[in-house]
Nucleic acid binder design. Sequence first.
DNA 1: GGGGTGCCCGTCCGATCGGGTAGGTGCGGG
DNA 2: CCCGCACCTACCCGATCGGACGGGCACCCC
Lengths: 222, 222
Amino acid sequence: MNRQATRPRAEQGQLSIVLVDDHAIVRQGLRSILDREDDMRVVGEATTAAEARVVLDRLRPDIVLLDLKLGTGSDTEGLELCSEITANHPGIGVLVLTTFLDDAYVLEAVHRGAKGYVIKDVDTSALVSAIRTVARDESAFDSRSASVMARSIRTAPDEPALTEREQGVLELLATGLSNRVVGERLFISETTVKFHVRNIMRKLGASTRAEAVYEASKMGLI
Amino acid sequence: MNRQATRPRAEQGQLSIVLVDDHAIVRQGLRSILDREDDMRVVGEATTAAEARVVLDRLRPDIVLLDLKLGTGSDTEGLELCSEITANHPGIGVLVLTTFLDDAYVLEAVHRGAKGYVIKDVDTSALVSAIRTVARDESAFDSRSASVMARSIRTAPDEPALTEREQGVLELLATGLSNRVVGERLFISETTVKFHVRNIMRKLGASTRAEAVYEASKMGLI
DNA sequence: GGGGTGCCCGTCCGATCGGGTAGGTGCGGG
DNA sequence: CCCGCACCTACCCGATCGGACGGGCACCCC
């Protein structure tokens, strides 16, 4: 561990990689795995989005392995970082690496320019092969991610996007409040609440509020 | 990596450890971290509950680091394994290691004899210290886990346990079916469905079916 | 045998939901 | 300037829910 890493880029032919993950255990695991590959070199690590911005700006690696769930903060922190990287550093290939498969997240990550999406429970050879794929500027999605995308394309054309108001109504719905009480909380009439509830159910493809809550919960909206 | 590990037990004074986790990355990370500690030695690994049974039976380590989420199968696989280990191998200290904090899981793990509960995003020193704590046969819970337990003690005396029937009703509830239709699906009368729904709501502390679905979703029941 | 629990069923009723109709406002982009 | 969109409101109505009574049967454990 006494190697110097002063140079921003790895040697010729080597892929420089930065790890962004708040789990020390995972970072250590990735390091161990990647250090065994002759053509790869982990040149930096970051544990938060803020730290990642600094590190990436300075090191400009070929690849960044990005965990979308960063810390306990906002769930979109990792996604926003993903957008930023692809916008500001087109040369950096973003390979998203998460713990489990979340349909909404896969799609969001793709929209935001991730070149690959890998679940952490892949074996090590699949991971390094995904990295090489992204390094060739191709897309790397494991079979499960791919099926998620395929499914979403044929089932959900676009719009599960709830408006701000609907989101607020939805959150109160989940706590078991009636339309009338939700209206009182949000200072709107019961009629309006019903209006929003119906729109929520329509957008989520649910036929009752209970199902809407279930779908929203699955999609991570609440 | 060419060391032999033929002997089931580590040398005198060393803690023998077995890793049970389906993520290769995590296992590798744990190995790297623990191998740096002079008094610890990773003597085996397992990726599934079945594999773990064999490995633990043969190696009988001092400590097992157990990820509760094993594979894509049943969510209770890890918990059941936890029970088995504490029942069949009282000498093995179970330190549960999961990706994120799930209130219900922490409690379940404790009930089933886990001596410690650590979230994967702790830093490495906290992890090794937790291992040493468990090795001394003390309890090791990080502050967040401890607060979950404290909270559950004062808010939920015991019984979120749903009966099999209630579980079935709950799952259909989440799909937005009415009491009548749920009854048709389960070949019971609508009245009986209402009976179960009310019991579900009571057990989950919910006042409507929507809230019940939300709570159940949070608790990982559906 | 009593007591606990899971499971099953019924009737009654007021409150609420789901869905339809009809409108209005404000704000931004083509 | 008009269109779309988010947001708000009102009336109506049948279906459903949530909760309150009442009952039953089978099981296991003390």
